[in-house]
């Protein structure tokens, strides 16, 4: 069994999302602030006529915010019926991993910002964190 992941970076860390969940990867588009949205939702963007909320992953993971760079991307994901854009620092790769390379993530021993991490992949010397999307999006809020 293999799983395919989109690999991207936020701050110093590498993250991975199941490709099945990723609908597209976009360059940074103008974002309109949305009143009343959670603080990590920086606003909405107009993606070819659809309105997509965008989450700043730095804010969500409690890291310092940075200016957008040439490599910044918005990963559009569909999780259940939720369609959301995640703003990340760079998207590096799409890679296959064997199921046995993917391990559960031990939350207790980890930093606060890792509370949304579900699994971890050891790729040689690199560690790729796989977030729990439901927690990341804070869907349980209502």
């Amino acid at each position: 069994m293999v799983e395919q992941f989109v690999i991207f970076s936020i701050g110093p860390e590498n993250y991975g999302l199941d490709v099945a969940m990723v609908s597209s990867i976009e360059r940074i588009l103008p974002i309109t602030r949305m009143p009343y949205a959670e603080d990590f939702v920086i606003g909405v963007m107009n993606l070819r006529g659809d309105i997509i909320p965008v989450i700043d992953m730095h804010r969500r993971l409690g890291m310092d915010e940075i200016e957008d760079t040439e490599t910044s991307r918005i990963i559009i994901i569909q999780y259940e019926d939720y369609i959301v854009g995640l703003k990340v620092d760079a998207v590096s790769n799409v890679k296959y991993f064997d199921t046995d390379e993917i391990q559960p993530f031990d939350k207790i021993s980890s930093a606060d910002r890792n509370q949304y991490i579900d699994r971890v992949i050891y790729d040689g010397d690199d560690m790729i964190l796989v977030p729990d999307v439901s927690g990341l999006l804070n869907i349980a809020r209502d």
Partner: peptide
């Protein structure tokens, strides 16, 4: 009118 989608549907004032 473009819908805001499910993720933002809890924001009633918009």
């Amino acid at each position: 009118i473009k819908p805001l989608g499910k993720y933002l549907s809890h924001i009633k004032s918009i």
